[in-house]
Nucleic acid binder design. Structure first.
Lengths: 171, 171
DNA sequence: GAGCAATATTTCAAATGTCAAAGGTTTACG
DNA sequence: CGTAAACCTTTGACATTTGAAATATTGCTC
């Protein structure tokens, strides 16, 4: 058995012994975290196997796909939740693969704009379609009304978190 | 403005133009992902600032705290959703910091067991208390009944995902 | 007891991630 | 004009992550 198959079990054991009604927020958080990780790992595996791409690359290309004129690296960083320093290398590798172009506009030479190449657009279109299908498949057992409800309520959680951050980071 | 303050905005822009009733699973997934990332980053920031620890280290110590007799590295890997190859270096660094001990039992020399030191126990106890408080704080605006409901429904999502994995990975 | 499958951990290469600091460019102010 | 402040990207050090391959040890079988 390869290591990749040994992976996931369950982080929630941490609060196994939780008393009724207490630490609900902690319980919810651990369940969100493990579920998100589970889905991420599955998507990562499929992206890799079927397209030879990584999840951060997919995220980044998704943004560029919506902005055909390209985006500045800083803008890309914000939209993908990838740190600035990280975007550099990410775009670099995508450029090496011929999926992305980098250019500096005449107006402001501080700026670097990245945009998808033809090849990049084609690859992303295929990945996006597959990606959506994977999710529909994975969540296939969940009632659509529950999906909608979860979407709303998690939005509430997100707002609450945003209102209680220590550092800076807004929406 | 330092880079760490520039960070997060919102990944959900990807589906800005989504038609009503379509791609609900994708929408939900993106919201889960961005919310989880938001909370993770906040916890990471606080762990770092207040305790000089990282999130994976916290996860790992949480498991060892519940098993005072220690755990084998493979067992640790499964419980923390950290891959096997990863546990090695993680434990190594914790040992360097005097928070964890490693020893090989007489019975089976393939095995390495890790356990918390006295110092490790004390540090973790402090971190755990703070951690729980942070979560209660961050989710402070969310009604407790919603929290409970989310916990149940996300459990449903998790089950569904587990039933539709391509590789191996169970619960 | 030699050989082989199973188990447990380590190692490796490549990519990603955080954070901090340094590099150029542009803008604005005195 | 000249220079400081602001802006955008890159770089660097280091930790983490994945996936796969390599090691080491044990247990089983013939």
């Amino acid at each position: 058995m390869t290591e990749s198959e040994s992976g996931i079990v369950d982080l929630e054991i941490i609060v196994q012994g939780t008393q009724e009604g207490k630490k609900q927020e902690l319980r919810l958080w651990l369940r969100m975290l493990s579920t998100t990780k589970l889905i991420s790992q599955e998507i990562r595996r499929r992206l890799r196997n079927e397209f030879g791409a990584t999840l951060p690359q997919f995220d980044l290309m998704a943004q560029l796909y919506r902005e055909r004129d390209g985006l500045r690296l800083g803008e890309l960083s914000k939209r993908t939740m990838v740190t600035n320093g990280n975007v550099t290398g990410l775009v670099e590798r995508l450029e090496t693969d011929g999926l992305v172009l980098r250019e500096t506009p005449d107006g402001d030479r501080r700026v670097t704009v990245a945009k998808l190449t033809k090849k990049g657009e084609e690859l992303f279109a295929a990945m996006a379609a597959a990606h959506e299908g994977w999710l529909r498949d994975m969540m296939g057992d969940v009632d659509p009304s529950i999906i909608a409800e979860l979407w709303r309520d998690i939005g509430g959680v997100k707002s609450s978190v945003n209102n209680h951050l220590s550092g800076a980071a807004f929406d």
